[in-house]
Write a protein that binds this DNA or RNA. Structure first.
Length: 544
RNA sequence: AGGGCUAUGGCCAAGCGGUUAAGGCACUGGACUUUGACUCCAGGAUCGGCGGUUCGAAUCCAUCUAGCCCUGCCA
């Protein structure tokens, strides 16, 4: 069924009524940090909202506050968006419009709609009143147009210190909407801008700048998050009073949240700075950098975001949903080799010594394009420790136990005959026998094994597995700091089948019965250092 | 003299006056299975509460309740 949401409904109506022919949206990040999955939702939605109707999206950096912004983030955000596979029509910057914004501000002054205010920030706050009390007019509100013009030019020319003067819209100090109590339009900032350098020392505020940017670009639907609802009257005021030809429409939707993780910029930075994670690209981070390194795919993320939908109700989506979209996407894309994370040696006593045969394993039975590989099989193999229990615990146990028979996937049935222990009683080896009649593919059907387990042979290669879990626990605590999952990363050493010797970084696999993994960038294949990130475990109906 | 917004099954979310109230995720059964995976079948809501309008309301009106946002020279 076609996805539907309230914004698409609005757009559809606007097209049917002839209000718009081409739909133009924009993704307006501020280049002051790394993007995360919440930002991805923003761009993905902006992109498809336009694309679904044959329109396009602009990527526009909202660089109106030089104090926080930097080119490093511009480049980072661009590459994040490219990785997601989203294409913008125009790459733009708010700073491209500084001159026009200035001219429009002069127009506002001439119309008597804006004035230079000499109050300092504390005074402005006092004059603004509060939620219950109306504000008072600034004593500078009634300056003459000429004086305002002169003062504003002096601001631009750097004749005043920071904080001494601002340009304000003349609206209504008694408005119940705080945003309309003569909001600031320009402030003085002697800061070096990453694109305009030192050309300007006055910078427009968001509400003023954003409206003009949208209008200049002909944005038809300026989609933003809920917290800007109260700003919409100001947005419309600026567009109207600045006499912009094109009138964009701002529409707000509920921002996306995910359980068991954070997208708070402040907290993410804290994680990095306090080394609670290895960096902005730590595979546990919800940053695009982190998701990429973890092995998440742009396709899964996009489908997930699009399926969540858009509404005016800000909700929290369960992390399990994202996981399932990953599995679905990777299912046919990944080969399905075998890896044993926690090896237990098995000696097949009735298999001839010094002999090796090869068994055929299809890479992915649901995607024949991958073909198959030949897996060496001989007297010694390794199985997963947890696939063996001395006694079958219950009728549902589908693994190996003493006296029981299981199939080694792609190979033979083996039967456990004896357990070898060390001095402390730990199981260190299993002695089994195999049945040559039961070879995989032979059509043997005389009896059923107690299950099928994965294994690796003696030529297996050592590998490190990094098993990730959610960053935050649901423990009822308020503070993120108190919700940190101590087990968000477990590193274990195991074995991968030797056919995986020539993998490449970022290659994705489904290790049979263990989950989806990718090759971490920390790997050094040439030197035999194999590191795998668990992208997501397989679902499991197994219960103790 | 506060204002704005939201409320549909555990989560997300369609629905726009007449439908047995879509779908996805989760969960529970069951089938299948050389991955306890995948796949397949089956299972659950009367729509925040109370009134009203209407032949008919999740959809319109009123009111109540709950939650979120707004008093940066941030965006």
């Amino acid at each position: 069924m076609e996805r539907s949401n309230f914004i698409k409904t609005i757009i559809k109506q606007d097209i049917e009524s002839g209000k718009h022919e081409t739909i133009i949206t924009r993704y307006p990040p501020e280049p002051n940090g790394y993007s995360h999955i919440g930002h991805a939702m923003g761009f993905i939605n902006q992109y498809y909202l336009a694309k679904d109707f044959g329109g396009y999206t602009n990527l526009r950096f909202d660089d109106t506050n030089p104090v926080a912004e930097d080119t490093e983030f511009v480049d980072g955000i661009k590459s994040d968006m490219e990785w997601l596979g989203l294409k913008w029509k125009n790459l733009l910057f708010a700073s491209d419009y500084f001159e026009e914004m200035y001219d429009r501000a002069v127009l506002l002054i001439k119309k008597g709609k804006a004035y230079v205010c000499d109050l300092n920030s504390e005074e402005i706050r006092k004059y603004r009143g509060d939620l219950q009390t109306p504000g008072k007019n600034s004593p500078f509100k009634d300056r003459s147009v000429e004086e305002n013009l002169r003062l504003f030019e002096s601001m631009r020319n750097g004749e005043f210190k920071e904080g001494t003067h601002v340009l304000r819209a003349k609206i209504d100090m008694a408005s119940p909407n705080m945003n309309l109590r003569d909001p600031l339009l320009y402030r003085i900032l002697f800061a070096h801008h990453h694109r305009t350098g030192d050309k300007w020392c006055i910078y427009p505020m968001y509400d003023y700048a954003h409206s003009i940017e949208d209008a200049i670009e002909g944005i038809t639907h300026s989609v933003c998050s809920l917290e800007f609802e109260n700003h919409r009257p100001l947005y419309n005021w600026v567009v109207a009073e600045c006499e912009m030809k094109h009138i964009p429409r701002q529409i707000e939707y509920g921002r996306f949240n995910l359980t068991n993780t954070v997208t708070s910029k402040r907290f993410l930075r804290k994680l990095v700075e306090e080394k609670l994670v290895s960096g902005w690209d730590d595979p546990r981070m919800p940053t695009i950098l982190g998701l990429k390194r973890r092995g998440f795919t742009p396709e899964a993320i996009t489908e997930f975001i699009l399926d969540i939908g858009l509404s005016k109700k800000g909700g929290v989506t369960e992390y399990a949903m994202l996981e399932q979209y990953l599995r679905q996407d990777l299912k046919l894309k990944a080969k399905r080799p075998m890896a044993v994370l926690n090896p237990l040696k098995v000696v097949i006593t009735n298999y001839p010594e010094n002999e090796t045969e090869y068994v055929t394993g299809v890479w992915n039975q649901e995607n024949e394009e991958f073909g198959s590989r030949e897996i060496p099989f001989s007297r010694v193999v390794y199985i997963e420790r947890e696939d063996f229990l001395e006694e079958k615990p219950n009728k549902k146990w589908k693994r190996l136990s003493l006296g029981l028979e299981v199939r080694l996937r792609h190979a033979y049935f083996i039967k456990c005959e004896e357990i070898i222990r060390d001095n402390e009683g730990n199981i260190i080896e299993l002695r089994c026998t195999y049945d040559v009649e039961t070879k995989s593919g032979s059509g043997f059907s005389e009896r059923k094994p107690n299950g099928t387990i994965h294994w690796v042979d003696a030529t297996a290669v050592k590998a490190e597995f990094r098993l990730y879990d959610v960053l935050l626990l649901d423990n009822g605590k308020e503070e993120y700091t108190d919700r940190m999952n101590p087990d968000s990363l477990k590193v274990i050493n195991g074995l991968i089948e030797s056919s995986l010797k020539d993998v490449n970084k970022y290659d994705q696999f489904q290790f049979i019965r263990n989950g989806f993994f990718n090759v971490d960038v920390d790997s050094n294949i040439e030197e035999g250092l194999y590191i795998f990130n668990r992208i997501v475990p397989l679902k499991s109906a197994f219960r103790k």
